[in-house]
Amino acid sequence: SKTSNTIRVFLPNKQRTVVNVRNGMSLHDCLMKALKVRG
């Protein structure tokens, strides 16, 4: 089974995003990807 960790990230202006960290990806990469999608 694939394991994925879901991390809630609290952003300024009362924004919130959820990042799924996959195996083999660093938290930083996942964060940058999530913020790019939002931006």
Rank of each mutant, 00 (worst) to 15 (best):
S1Q: 15
S1I: 09
S1N: 14
S1A: 05
S1L: 12
S1R: 14
K2G: 15
K2Q: 15
K2E: 08
T3A: 15
S4N: 12
S4C: 11
S4G: 10
N5G: 05
N5K: 12
N5V: 07
T6V: 13
I7D: 05
I7F: 08
I7S: 01
I7L: 10
R8G: 02
V9M: 02
V9L: 02
F10Y: 09
F10T: 05
F10L: 06
L11Q: 00
L11V: 02
P12A: 02
P12Q: 02
P12R: 02
N13S: 10
N13T: 09
N13D: 10
N13C: 08
N13H: 05
K14M: 08
K14I: 04
K14Q: 07
Q15H: 01
Q15K: 02
R16L: 04
T17S: 11
T17P: 00
V18E: 03
V18A: 08
V18G: 03
V18T: 03
V19F: 12
V19T: 04
V19D: 01
N20Y: 11
N20E: 05
N20S: 08
N20D: 04
V21S: 07
V21I: 05
V21A: 11
V21M: 04
V21E: 00
V21L: 07
R22L: 14
R22F: 03
R22C: 11
R22D: 04
N23Y: 12
N23I: 08
G24A: 08
L27Q: 00
H28Q: 14
H28N: 09
H28L: 12
H28Y: 13
D29R: 05
D29H: 13
C30Y: 03
C30G: 11
C30S: 11
L31T: 05
L31R: 01
M32V: 10
M32L: 13
M32R: 07
K33D: 03
K33Q: 02
K33L: 05
A34T: 03
L35R: 00
L35A: 05
L35V: 06
K36R: 12
V37L: 07
V37W: 13
R38Q: 05
R38H: 00
G39C: 14
G39S: 13
G39V: 04
